[in-house]
Design a protein around this nucleic acid. Structure first.
Lengths: 134, 134
DNA sequence: CTACTTGCAAAGCCTTTGCAAACTA
DNA sequence: TAGTTTGCAAAGGCTTTGCAAGTAG
């Protein structure tokens, strides 16, 4: 993790470590504003701009995955397997779906059929979560 | 198509018809700005706000599908089958993938396992398209 | 010591909102 | 005619940029 950053000429700072730790511990899918609030507890002077810059580096490094949502991206600590995200239209909660191994299979098929070099995939399901159905 | 709108208390206007026609004819995946430019040829006084308002109605009506991309949503005329979108990181082109019928199967599984009522799904592959590889 | 990172403020961009005039059914 | 849609302008919200000061290696 540290080495990956350094190989790219980036540095591991306390901010970056803390951000990665929040992702890993919380198991959530925070957006930039939520990360900002959490990080301010440890680093009262941190700025939103730093959050965005940090996220950019970690994304390029493959340590953080960006979930593109309508004008409000959320982020996921990089899981070792491809999995869908279930997004509740009512409460906005984001739930990790199961491993979807065949995503790789589809990827393979697409690489061949369309001659398209896949770098990343994203599978989203929008709907209503269990809690919001009652 | 016309009836679906009327059932919801919406009206079919020349703007809306033209927008749908562009989607159907072009087979592309324009964003709001691109639709604006095309529609201005026919309706010189049309505004971007109208584009967004129209897209909102057509989305709710299920006639247009929104592809959430980082701060720049693109739109797809509603296809009768679920299919992935291949997004080129270099030229930005969006390619329709094949029918992915098992998406429904995964959906079923997720509905049951997570008790999550799916309204819509989105499968994106980011990478480099054929043209941009040379 | 050099190069990267941070924080602040400002700018950028896409998208939404409010309201009066125009239009559909 | 009643209720929806349009266009304009302004506001809103998320994200990026520039630059000087601070910090990692």
């Amino acid at each position: 993790m540290l080495t990956k950053l350094q190989d790219r000429g980036s540095r591991m700072t306390s901010h970056r470590l803390a951000l990665l730790r929040i992702m890993a511990v919380s198991e959530g899918h925070p957006n930039a504003a939520q990360l900002y609030e959490k990080l301010r507890e440890q680093f009262p002077t941190i700025s939103l701009a730093t959050i965005y810059k940090t996220l950019l580096v970690l994304k390029e490094d493959g340590q953080v995955f960006e979930i593109d949502m309508h004008n409000d991206s959320h982020y996921d600590g990089n899981k070792p397997y491809p999995h869908p995200h279930l997004i509740c239209n009512k409460c906005g909660d984001i739930i990790d779906g199961d491993d979807v191994s065949f995503l790789d299979a589809i990827g393979q098929e697409i690489q061949e059929k369309y001659n398209f070099q896949i770098a990343q995939s994203q599978l989203l399901f929008y709907g209503v979560c269990q809690n919001c159905q009652s």
